[in-house]
């Protein structure tokens, strides 16, 4: 009955080969930059004695949030050290936070851009949907093809997964600023950029912060899957436990991720609450 065949698989394979060849200088540069970023961050976290990092993190959390969360941070990190997963935990932190940073660096400007132009939004929207709903295993492969096994590929996978909420919530936040506020700014002669800077962005900040929070959470979730392409860290602990059917090891790795998740979630939450108050 069906006498046609679409060689999509071949097309994509051939296309990818050509594209990756064509892009290779650019890819190498990007790979170098991203690799340095993660490695630098990881070294920074792993080089000093554990207790120093714990103390610095606790103090930082105290300053950014409150003393209760600071205690949690200290105890939580102490626990990871006690469970002998300090190094993978720090490695996951480095990966997740670099991934978040890059996602926000690209995502927030894109979100702003989309809020200013209906056309850009219309183009970005399906791409975002695509990025969010595509099964993550599917883009692990091209990530590896472009960047090889390792942390850079993991970071790219994280970016694809974690960027959409940052873009979406930035656009939403800016669009939600009441028309009257924008009108008022314009009535006093503000141009587009100044209106954005003075009125729309500050008023959209709580929503943008919700996007940042989402972004961090998704980055953290993705670190586990990214361990399959060499992301390392706690994801790797979980992965190894799966391969060896070691329930205990899986639980330990999982616990480490849960501690990080709770800490980062509460931290961003209380930062955005503080922003609202000011």
């Amino acid at each position: 009955m069906i006498d046609f065949f679409i060689p999509l698989e071949d097309w994509i394979n051939i296309g990818f080969e050509r594209v990756s060849y064509f892009l290779s200088p650019f890819l190498r540069a990007a790979s170098g930059f991203l690799g340095t970023l993660i490695d630098g961050f990881e070294t920074l976290l792993l080089w000093p004695p554990e207790i120093v990092i714990m103390t610095v993190v606790a103090l930082l959390v105290w300053w950014l949030a409150n003393y209760r969360l600071a205690i949690f941070a200290f105890v939580g990190l102490l626990l990871t050290a006690g469970l002998d997963i300090w190094a993978p935990t720090m490695s996951t932190v480095a990966l997740a936070l670099s991934g978040t940073a890059v996602s926000l660096l690209v995502g927030i400007p894109l979100g702003i851009f989309a809020s200013q132009s209906k056309v850009v939004e219309r183009i970005l929207r399906p791409i975002m949907d695509f990025m969010q709903t595509l099964p993550s295993f599917v883009y692990l492969i091209p990530a590896v093809m472009f960047f090889g096994m390792g942390k850079v590929s993991a970071l790219v996978a994280i970016m694809i997964f974690a960027m959409p909420p940052a873009v979406r919530l930035t656009t939403l936040g800016i669009r939600e600023v009441s028309g009257e506020m924008v009108e008022a700014a314009r009535a006093f002669g503000s141009g587009r950029w100044q209106t954005l800077k003075d009125v729309q962005l500050p008023l959209a900040l709580p929503t943008i912060m919700a996007g940042v929070n989402q972004c961090i959470m998704m980055a953290l979730a993705m670190t586990v899957i990214a361990s399959m392409i060499g992301g390392g860290g706690l994801g790797n602990v979980v992965l190894r436990s799966m391969q060896t059917l070691n329930i205990g090891m899986g639980a330990v790795g999982g616990l480490g991720i849960v501690i990080l998740a709770i800490l980062l979630d509460r931290l961003t939450e209380s930062i955005s609450k503080k922003m609202k108050k000011d």
Binding site: M181, E183, F188, G189
Partner: peptide
């Protein structure tokens, strides 16, 4: 024209919640 000649007062005030009273008055 909007900066120098014509200014506007709005029905629902439309003053900026993230600015102080002084900053609002100084906005133009």
């Amino acid at each position: 024209l909007r900066k120098k000649n014509v200014s506007m007062v709005f029905q629902n005030f439309a003053i900026f919640p993230h600015y102080t009273v002084l900053e609002n008055a100084a906005y133009g």
